[in-house]
Each structure stands twice: as structure tokens, then as C-alpha cells.
Design a protein around this nucleic acid. Structure first.
Length: 647
RNA sequence: GCUGACGUAGCUCAACUGGUAGAGCAGCUGAUUUGUAAUCAGCAGGUUAAGGGUUCGAGUCCCUUCGUCAGCUCCA
């Protein structure tokens, strides 16, 4: 391996360098500034250290701080610096994994006692010293014996080491006093990591396995620039400011009370109004699209769920059985339902169906109960009593594509056209624990794929993320501050029609098995409303706002006039209230703003005499408009009717 | 469910190393009649999450249970 190698750059140009040249040398051959900015390199699509020798012809791209790949490298190095500092302060700490993640990095440690906030401060300070020392990250390739020797005191690393195949290169990275078994790559030296922050510590199972020991994980984040780090910390604060649990209390939308139990939502009148509008939107829309509404019970004989296969497979998520109804045999038990599908299936199966009837689309906004682990509950976003905007479609094989296509269109109508939310799609394929044969899954996954492609939609793959009864398309919503949320799911199901022996008479007058689909556009009203609260920061568009107009008389003399106006608004279908409390106008305006009421209609003597109203728009400050009352009502009605997003 | 932190009035928070619960806002009453983000005064409000223990004495220390939070696992 002597002589020259040919390096192809991203612009297509080719440079000849001596064999064994490093990516740093490539960068230097291009320019000093690039060499100075270089963080790592992409060699044949794989990210390498700048200092790693290249022995063969290769395509090389120099990574600088403005690439996403470089940020991952930086964060990976940050994790090592974290571990370096922890090892110095806590020599007894055993190291686990320390990868970069989407919004930062973490490192797992096995330590005798958990880290305290004070520990984090000390660790962060020590990290700054490690950065100041600017230790180079040195890569070495070692054999298994050597690696075993080096990590003899780190059982977690040894465990990982033994999983590596014989054909895999074993590499270790050293920065100053710290050595880690690591695939790399890293920035050239610890001095490159200047802008970072440790965020919090929490327990995490080793290898993510709840049967194994709990390690202590420290999370942090890192950026190339001070501004980026500051912006991230601001974003985190902003997310806190929008917390739906806090806003839900302030705006009197909902509560969760110990007397009722965790994960069970009390929708107060204001929150219920939002739910009501969402139901109205989806029900109006699906009726136009050929769905039929149904209602089914909250509890059922548990036999139904054995037949559907939920029991015992889904039992960990179901509430325990209740005793039989009065006068029934004792061995008959009842369960609350965690899903609606078996009931909708029984409606389908309640009479003979013809191929001419299909597709049959049964919809129900229904409450179901799932016994989620207590530690997973989180405000409205993760609950035990769920309100699903559920529907099941029974159709022929040849109708699948069209049905999926229409569901994707409905999804777009609701999420994008109505709420202005961006979203992306994921095709989730067969999980390990599943019902049905691989052949059936092949057909099902293929059908979803074709529908997506027909809709010319781009989508990602979530391998193994499907439900146990079929593959699904998951919709990930993006909110106002860029966070992603699990919303809509569309699932194909070949299994339940089989279990319930569903049939329709074909044009050949022979029995056929229909295909079934499950879908929920909002997902659950709880999670969707929770997401909306954070998305809008509580400032709902007029059509969703629990209180659309608040009428404020300036003084006692206008109370009767204000009440009359409130009646006019209410008669026009506008949710209105009067704040005629014995407080200053300033006080009442402030209260209206804090409650995020979109419009305050101020009525003074002048307005009453002229038949006008002084309109204060939420968030617009002192700027106000004097409008004839008719005109104001027309404007609000218009915004409600079109479900306008502003104000 | 697991690890850790936490739980004081409706809300946000005080209360020295154990010494006998306090403030602002909200609420109620009254005065004030207000022109676009907090008028003034008075009153009321707590078995300190629940239960048990240590102590002369527990909001404070210990145990159990419940709940909340940060994560893990799981998930709409």
C-alpha cells in the first residue's frame, strides 16, 4: 500500500495524496481556513476522525461546524468529556454508554449513590477544566485481549466488548486520563467543546432493559457557538412556559385530582368546550366523507377480549376484571374496554354484508381505559382514561389503497389545513410480539406502502414499531416551537377479521373476508388538546377559545348595556361573558389578557350612544378598534365559521 | 413498575441547626365608579398529602402508603 490515493471531493474534483494521508491533510490541501474549521470528515459516507489515515481511494467530505453530522460528533465528544470529569471526581464510577442524541448527549454511570444537583455543578466545572487542558482525542485499534485488559475494571464495557464480532474493528479513544471503548469519531481535541451545559440526572436501565440494573444517566447538550447554546436553553424555557399542566390550571381547562386517581382527566367547562369543538369538527367532517357514527359500551364481558386476542397479550394494559352482573353466572367477568375495535366488529357482524356495502366506516369518539404504568403518566399527554376519535373501516382488498389515501387526505385536512400543523409520516412495520403469519404481514405492509406512494407522500420507516395486529402509519406532528408529537395513527388489520370470522358476500356469491383498518386522527382528545395548549401557548384561535368575547362595561352606568350586548353575541352563536365586577377597567383588562380571551369588547358611554364597541384584540396591547356592534359580530362569526387561526 | 427528588392556604412561595405555621395573589365584605395589563381597607382561609413512630416538643428526624416531577421502560 504505497504511492498515491485519489480523493474525490463533494464538488467532484479529485486530488492525489500520499497513501495514509489523513482527512486533516485533505483539508489542508484545500485551504487553511477549512483546515482550521474542520471537525471531522465523511469518508465514503462514514464519519471519521480527521487524524485517521486513509489508505485507499475515497470520497471525502470535510465536516465543519455548520453540518448536522459535525454536531453529533461534537456531542459525542462532549459525552466523553463528561465521563472524563466524572471519573476524576468519582473514581469508583463504572462507565456505561455515552452517545449523542437529537438534542444533546448523555452518559450512563454505575455509581454507589445517585448524582445530586451539586454533583452536576462540580462535574460541569471539572468538564471546563478538561476542555481547557485540550487533550487530543486519540484513536487506537486494539485486539480483544488488549481491550479486555484495558477495561478489566469496567464490567459494562466488557459486556459490550464481548458482543463485538471477530470481524469488527475494536477501537478505543483516549482523551487525557480517560479511555473509552468507542467506535468514534471525535473532534480533534477536548478544547473544541466550548459551549455545553449539563441539564439533569436520572436513573436509566442498563441497555434499556427493566430487568437489569439501574444506572445513573447525566444529560447535557453542546453546541459549536455560544448563541446556539443560548437559543437552545431559551427554547427549553419557552417549552416550560407553555407547559399544558401549568396553563391548564391557569386557564381553568382541566384538573387531575388525587381523589379520582392519576391519569384521569376532569375536563372543566373551558377545557370541555375545546374538546367539544374538536369533536364537532371531526364528526362534521367524517359524516361528509361517508362515515357512520356508532356508540358502544364502556364495559364488556371479558370473553370479547379473549376472542379479539387482546387478552392475554394486552392484559398488562387492561384493568382487572370485575364481577359478573347481578344474576349472572359467577365465572362471567367484565372488563373496561381499552379499545373499541371488537365492538365495532360486532356491529359489522350483526348482519350479512354484501360487497356492495363496502367500505363500511364506523366512527365513535369513545372513552377507553388503559392501565398505564404509573411512572409513564404525564398531564394530559399520557393518561389512563383516553378519549379516542376512533373509527374502523371494513373493506375489500381492492379498496385498501383508496381508503388509506382518503384517510391521509382527512389527516391533512384536519392537521394541516385546519390547525396549520406540519407533520411527517412513518410506516411502522411488524414488531416481535405479533399475531399472524409473516405472509399476512408482507401483504399488509405492502398495501400501506403503495397507498403512501400513490399519495406521493414522503415517509420514514419505523422498523418493528407496528401494533401486534398489523402495521401502521404514524403521523408525527410538529408544534409551534418545533417539537414532535405522536398524533394520528392508521393501522391495517388482517388479524381481527380472521378471529371474528368476518365475511361479506362477493359478486361471485361466495363468502369473502373483509380487511379492517383502525384510525384515529387526533389520536386521543387528551393528548391532542394537551399538544394544542402548548402549541398555542394557551392563546387559542377564536373558534376554539373557551371564551371568545369578554364584554367590559367601563362603569356601573354601562352594565345594562354590556349585558344586552352579551345577549346579542350569544344569540349570534358567540361564546361571550360580561365582566361587570366592581374592579377597575385596568384590572379587568389584565384578567382578560391573562385568561387569553381573544376579544375584549369595551363598552363606555360613547359606545352605548353610538352603537359601537371598543375592541381590544388579545395581545395587541393598547391598540384598539372602534367598530359598530354589527360589524364586530360579523367579524367574530366569520372567524368562527372559517376556523381562522388568528388572532 | 424502576431510580432519584419533592409534597406547607385555591395559586406562587416563607418558616435558623426540631421550639408550637406566615406573606403576596385569588376569595368574601365594604368603600371607590373606574377609558385598555393589578384602587384601597377589613375579613376569612391550613389535622403542613395520609397513617404510624422517635422526642418534653415534629412542617422539620425515621417508617409505610398515596400523589407530583425528571428520566428509564412503555405508549395515543
Amino acid at each position: 500500500m504505497t504511492g498515491e490515493i485519489r480523493i474525490t471531493l463533494p464538488d467532484g474534483s479529485v486530488r492525489a495524496l500520499p497513501a495514509g494521508a489523513t482527512a486533516r491533510a485533505v483539508a489542508e490541501s484545500i485551504g487553511v481556513r477549512l483546515a482550521r474549521d474542520a471537525v471531522a470528515a465523511k469518508v465514503n459516507g462514514e464519519i471519521w476522525d480527521l487524524s485517521r489515515p486513509i489508505h485507499q481511494d475515497a470520497a471525502v467530505e470535510i465536516l465543519t461546524p455548520n453540518s448536522a453530522d459535525a454536531l453529533y460528533v461534537l456531542r459525542h465528544s462532549s459525552a466523553h468529556i463528561l465521563a472524563t470529569a466524572v471519573r476524576q471526581l468519582f473514581p469508583e464510577a463504572k462507565i456505561g454508554f455515552g452517545p449523542p442524541i437529537d438534542d444533546g448527549f448523555y452518559y450512563d454511570f454505575e455509581v454507589p449513590r445517585p448524582f445530586t444537583p451539586e454533583d452536576l455543578e462540580r462535574i460541569e466545572q471539572r468538564m471546563h477544566e478538561v476542555v481547557k487542558a485540550d487533550y487530543p482525542f486519540v484513536r487506537e485499534e486494539v485486539d480483544r485481549q488488549d481491550a479486555r485488559r484495558r477495561f478489566k475494571d469496567d464490567p459494562l464495557k466488557l459486556e459490550r466488548l464481548e458482543e463485538l464480532g471477530d470481524d469488527q474493528i475494536i477501537s478505543v479513544y483516549t482523551d487525557g486520563p480517560f479511555v473509552d471503548l468507542c467506535r468514534g469519531p471525535h473532534v480533534p481535541g477536548t478544547g473544541h467543546v466550548k459551549h455545553f451545559k449539563l441539564l439533569h440526572a436520572a436513573g436509566a436501565y442498563w441497555r434499556g432493559d427493566s430487568r437489569r440494573q439501574m444506572l445513573q444517566r447525566i444529560y447535557g447538550t453542546a453546541y459549536f457557538s455560544k448563541d446556539d447554546l443560548a437559543a437552545d436553553l431559551r427554547r427549553r424555557e419557552e417549552a416550560e412556559r407553555r407547559d399544558h399542566r401549568v396553563l391548564g390550571k391557569q386557564l381553568d381547562l382541566f384538573s387531575i385530582q388525587e381523589d379520582i386517581g392519576p391519569g384521569l382527566i376532569l375536563w372543566h367547562p373551558r377545557g370541555a368546550t375545546i374538546q367539544f369543538e374538536l369533536r364537532r369538527l371531526i364528526e362534521d367532517e367524517i359524516l361528509k366523507r361517508g362515515y357512520q357514527l356508532v356508540y358502544t359500551p364502556h364495559v364488556t364481558r371479558e370473553q370479547l377480549f379473549f376472542r379479539s386476542g387482546h387478552l392475554p397479550l394486552y392484559e398488562h394494559n387492561q384493568y382487572p376484571a370485575m364481577a359478573a352482573g347481578a344474576g349472572e353466572a359467577e365465572d362471567i367477568r367484565y372488563r373496561t374496554k381499552p379499545m373499541n375495535c371488537p365492538m365495532h366488529i360486532l356491529i359489522y357482524a350483526s348482519r350479512q354484508r354484501s360487497y356492495r356495502d363496502l367500505p363500511i366506516r364506523l366512527a365513535e369518539v369513545a372513552n377507553v381505559y388503559r392501565n398505564e404504568l404509573s411512572g409513564t403518566l404525564h398531564g394530559m399527554l399520557r393518561v389512563r382514561g383516553l378519549t379516542m376519535d376512533d373509527a374502523h373501516i371494513f373493506c375489500r382488498e381492492d379498496q385498501i389503497e383508496q381508503e388509506i389515501f382518503e384517510m391521509l387526505d382527512l389527516t391533512d385536512f384536519v392537521l394541516s389545513q385546519t390547525f396549520g400543523l406540519q407533520y411527517r409520516l412513518d410506516l411502522a412495520t411488524r414488531p416481535e410480539k405479533k399475531l399472524g403469519s409473516d405472509e399476512v404481514w408482507d401483504v399488509a405492509e405492502g398495501a400501506l406502502k403503495r397507498a403512501l406512494e400513490r399519495g406521493k407522500l414522503t415517509y420514514g420507516l419505523d422498523v418493528g414499531g407496528g401494533a401486534f395486529y398489523g402495521p401502521k402509519i404514524d403521523v408525527k406532528l410538529k408544534d409551534a416551537i418545533g417539537r414532535e408529537w405522536q398524533g394520528t395513527t392508521i393501522q391495517l388489520d388482517y388479524e381481527l377479521p380472521e378471529r371474528f370470522q368476518l365475511e361479506y358476500a362477493g359478486s361471485d356469491n361466495r363468502p369473502h373476508r373483509p380487511v379492517m383498518m383502525h384510525r384515529a386522527i387526533y389520536g386521543t382528545l387528551e393528548r391532542f388538546v394537551g399538544m394544542l395548549i402548548e402549541h398555542f401557548a394557551g392563546a387559542f384561535p377564536v373558534w376554539l377559545a373557551p371564551e371568545q368575547v369578554r364584554v367590559l362595561p367601563i362603569a356601573e352606568a354601562q352594565i345594562a348595556g354590556a349585558r344586552a350586548m352579551h345577549e346579542r353575541l350569544r344569540a349570534a352563536g358567540i361564546r361571550s361573558s360580561v365582566d361587570d365586577r366592581n374592579d377597575t377597567l385596568n384590572y379587568r383588562v389584565r384578567d382578560g389578557e391573562l385568561m387569553k380571551v381573544p376579544y375584549m369588547a369595551v363598552v363606555g358611554q360613547r359606545e352605548l350612544e353610538q352603537g359601537t364597541v371598543a375592541v381590544r384584540v388579545r395581545g395587541a396591547g393598547k391598540k384598539q378598534e372602534i367598530l359598530p356592534v354589527d360589524q364586530f359580530i360579523a367579524r367574530v362569526k366569520g372567524e368562527i365559521a372559517t376556523r381562522a387561526l388568528a388572532p
